[in-house]
């Protein structure tokens, strides 16, 4: 045992293990800037709202892909389910946004828990196909049960005020963006905490080397099921936010391209450090806005080209470069690798 007086090694060890626990100034700047954008650019509130929601959606994917290394092409299943759950609840007269948000997340979590065991066997290829299949089945289910979902016409409904005070939707777009901001920030803080816990460390171990994780006694299957459920809840919450702030849902929420887009956002921003999804969502949506203003219909080409280049250069190499660049800007903020 060590002496009661902490040694230099102990202090260094503690500092190392807690290095990400404290909020660093670049993080604070990031959140203040996001909030500031809503206040300063009220005319852009709808766009910012879209970015915040897409950012939460991408964060949900980061929990399984970035933290745990489980690939998925079916995240739209939970997004769509969350959106429809909130929409149906509201159309039945329970129009409180917070309630709808929790409800959407909870229903999506149930589906996540139910389908997580499908991910435990097989490799990445199997997982990509299974998750894709589940989301397609769900979309078809929504399509065929028009009595509940409105079918191809979608659902229109009206929402109550957030906390009974702030109207959201077309007349309250700034409120809507603030509401999404609050939800994103709270869920982000929870995810951030989770990533630094022993549970989060175990997820990183599963990503890095599942064989060794099992050899350390980690119940890898249970951990994967748990994080997949949490990720589903996050995606469901994002879907619910979109439904509530636009007050319309339609079948395209389940589309394959939703799952693909959210993966692109995460990859553009970089997976594994939680901010990547939000940054990627901002880049993706702003790019789309700018390019489609110049050449409508062809903006996808540039996103595609960006992806091809990203992969050819190597995501790892770009990430290493970014870490080095960040550490030269803020030496202690970017120390070590993202985990």
């Amino acid at each position: 045992m060590r002496a009661a007086q902490p040694t230099a090694t102990t202090r260094r060890l503690e500092a190392h293990l807690h290095r990400r626990a404290r909020w660093r100034w670049p993080e604070i700047v990031f959140w203040v800037a996001a909030l500031g954008a809503i206040v300063v650019l009220p005319s852009r509130a709808a766009l910012i709202n879209e970015i915040l929601i897409a950012g939460l959606f991408a964060l949900s994917l980061d929990l399984i892909l970035g933290l745990t290394g489980i690939v998925s092409l079916g995240q739209a299943a939970f997004f769509g389910l969350g959106a429809y759950s909130a929409a149906i609840l509201a159309s039945k007269g329970f129009a409180d946004p917070t309630l709808g948000l929790l409800f959407g997340a909870a229903i999506a979590a149930v589906l996540g828990l139910a389908t997580a065991p499908l991910l435990l066997r097989g490799g990445d290829l199997t997982r990509l196909m299974v998750t894709l299949g589940v989301s397609l089945m769900l979309g078809e289910l929504a399509n065929r049960n028009g009595w509940l979902t409105g079918g191809a016409d979608g659902l229109n409904f009206s929402m109550g005020k957030v906390l009974g005070l702030f109207p959201i939707g077309f007349t309250g777009q700034r409120n809507a963006a603030l509401y999404s901001f609050a939800a994103l920030f709270i869920l982000f803080a929870v995810a951030r905490r989770l990533a630094q816990s022993p549970f989060g460390l175990a997820l990183a171990a599963i990503r890095e080397n599942r064989l060794r994780a099992g050899a350390l006694g980690i119940a890898t299957s249970r951990r994967i099921v748990a994080i997949y459920t949490v990720s589903a809840a996050y995606a469901g919450a994002a879907g619910a936010l979109l439904a509530e702030t636009t007050q319309i849902v339609s079948l395209d929420l389940f589309d394959f391209h939703r799952s693909a887009d959210v993966m692109l956002m995460l990859i553009i921003g970089g997976a594994g450090y939680l901010y990547g999804g939000i940054i990627g969502a901002a880049v993706f949506i702003v790019l789309r806005d700018v390019i489609s203003a110049a050449t409508p219909e062809y903006w996808e080409f540039w996103i595609g080209a960006l992806l091809v280049v990203l992969v050819l250069i190597g995501r790892e190499r770009i990430h290493d470069f970014a870490v080095r660049a960040a550490s030269s800007l803020a030496p202690d903020a970017a120390r070590g690798d993202a985990a």
């Binding site: 892909l65 690939v71 092409l73 490799g123 990445d124 290829l125 990509l128 693909a260 993966m263 692109l264 990859i267 219909e297 062809y298 903006w299 996808e300 080409f301 996103i303 595609g304 080209a305 960006l306 992806l307 091809v308 990203l310 992969v311 050819l312 995501r315």
Partner: peptide, 28 residues
Amino acid sequence: RRLYGASPLDQVLFTIGLVLMAMPIADF
């Protein structure tokens, strides 16, 4: 050929990228 040994995720991203490029080209 550069991606034969790459991870499934990279292959997915790369080929989705190609699709995203092919469709606007055809449209154009």
